[in-house]
C-alpha cells in the first residue's frame, strides 16, 4: 500500500515539475496562435536557444544561474521581435500552409545552427549549488531542483494569470483573442500588441527552455523532437487560452511520467492515442479562449 502511495507521490511530483516546464514553454505559443491565427511550428526554437543561452553563459562565462536566465530571456525575446517583424508578420491572416512551411524551415535551420555552434551533444546543465541535492518535506525527500521548478512555475503561472486578468495589457490581449476586428475597431494597436505578445511568449519559452534544461536536454534536435509535446499542450489545451494549456500540460506531464514509470514500453503510444481521443472529443481544446 505504502509503495503504491509512494509511487503515486513520485509520479505526481515529477509530473508536476515536467508540466511546469511544458506550460512555460507552450503558453506563449497558445496565445500567439490564438491571437494571430498563426501556425507556428518553430516555437520550440526559442525555447532551445533559451536553453543554449543559459547553459553557455553558465558553463563558458561563469555567469550565475539567475543572471543567465534573465539574459537568456532578454536575448531571445529581442531576437524573436526581429523574426516577427521580418518573417512572421507578412504571413498573418494568410495561408496556413505558408506558415507551416516557413516555420518548418526555421526549425531545420535551427538544428543546423545549433549543431554548428554547440556540437551534436546535449549541453551540460548544473543547477546552482543552493538548488542541488534533496529537500526534506518531513514525510519524504525530494530533489531540490524539481521542487524549485514546481514553486517557480506556480509563481510564474499565478503572476501570468493575474497580469492577464488585471492589467490593461492583459485586457487588450483578451479582447483581441476574442475578436480581432472588434479590438481593432475600438482602437487597440493590434500590430504593436502582436509584437509584444510574441516577444513575451518567446521570452517565456526561453525561460522554460533554460529552467527545464535538466528535463528536456538542450541539443540540436530539440525543436523537432519536442515539437509534438508543445503542440499537444496547445491543441489539447485550446488555442488562445491561458488556462487550457495549463490543464493540458498537467495532463501530459503527469501521464508521461506515469507511463514512463509504469509502462515504459507503450507509454508514448498511449500519450498520442490519448491526444487523438481528446481532440476528437473536443476539437477546440479542453478550454476555449476565455
Amino acid at each position: 500500500m505504502s509503495e503504491i502511495l509512494s509511487a503515486a507521490v513520485s509520479i505526481g511530483f515529477f509530473g508536476l515539475a515536467f508540466a511546469m516546464v511544458l506550460y512555460l514553454i507552450s503558453v506563449g505559443l497558445s496565445v500567439t496562435m490564438g491571437l494571430m491565427g498563426f501556425v507556428n511550428l518553430a516555437h520550440g526554437v526559442f525555447a532551445m536557444f533559451g536553453g543554449y543561452a543559459v547553459t553557455t553563459l553558465m558553463n563558458s562565462y561563469g555567469m550565475p544561474f539567475w543572471a543567465s536566465l534573465i539574459c537568456a530571456v532578454v536575448i531571445v525575446a529581442m531576437l524573436s521581435v526581429a523574426f516577427e517583424r521580418v518573417l512572421y508578420r507578412r504571413l498573418y491572416g494568410g495561408d496556413e500552409l505558408d506558415q507551416v512551411l516557413l516555420t518548418i524551415g526555421l526549425v531545420f535551420m535551427s538544428v543546423a545552427v545549433a549543431k554548428y555552434f554547440w556540437g551534436p551533444l546535449a549541453q551540460l546543465f548544473q543547477p546552482p549549488s543552493e538548488l542541488r541535492g534533496q529537500v526534506d518535506l518531513g514525510f519524504r525527500e525530494f530533489p531540490a531542483y524539481r521542487s524549485f521548478l514546481i514553486i517557480c512555475g506556480a509563481v510564474l503561472v499565478t503572476g501570468l494569470w493575474l497580469a492577464l486578468d488585471r492589467t490593461r495589457f492583459g485586457a487588450k490581449i483578451r479582447a483581441a483573442v476574442d475578436n480581432l476586428r472588434m479590438a481593432q475597431a475600438v482602437g487597440i494597436n493590434t500590430s504593436g500588441l502582436f509584437t509584444v505578445t510574441f516577444a513575451l511568449g518567446s521570452g517565456l519559452a526561453a525561460l522554460g527552455g533554460g529552467l527545464g534544461a535538466e528535463l528536456l536536454p538542450i541539443y540540436p534536435g530539440y525543436a523537432t523532437d519536442y515539437l509534438v509535446y508543445f503542440l499537444i499542450v496547445v491543441s489539447v489545451g485550446g488555442l488562445g487560452s491561458i488556462r487550457g494549456p495549463f490543464l493540458a500540460a498537467l495532463l501530459l506531464g503527469i501521464a508521461d511520467t506515469a507511463f514512463k514509470y509504469l509502462l515504459p514500453e507503450i507509454g508514448s503510444f498511449f500519450i498520442y492515442a490519448l491526444t487523438l481521443v481528446l481532440l476528437m472529443w473536443r476539437p477546440r481544446g479542453l478550454i476555449g479562449p476565455s
Binding site: E96, I232, S235, F269, Y272, L276, L279, P283
Partner: peptide, 24 residues
C-alpha cells in the same frame, strides 16, 4: 472532421502513433 491546427495535429498524431507502434 476538424480544421486548422487540430487537423494538422491529428494527421501528425496518426503518423507518430504508427511510428511508435512499429518501434515497439
Amino acid at each position: 472532421r476538424t480544421h486548422g491546427l487540430t487537423q494538422l495535429m491529428m494527421t501528425l498524431m496518426v503518423a507518430v502513433m504508427l511510428h511508435e507502434a512499429a518501434n515497439k
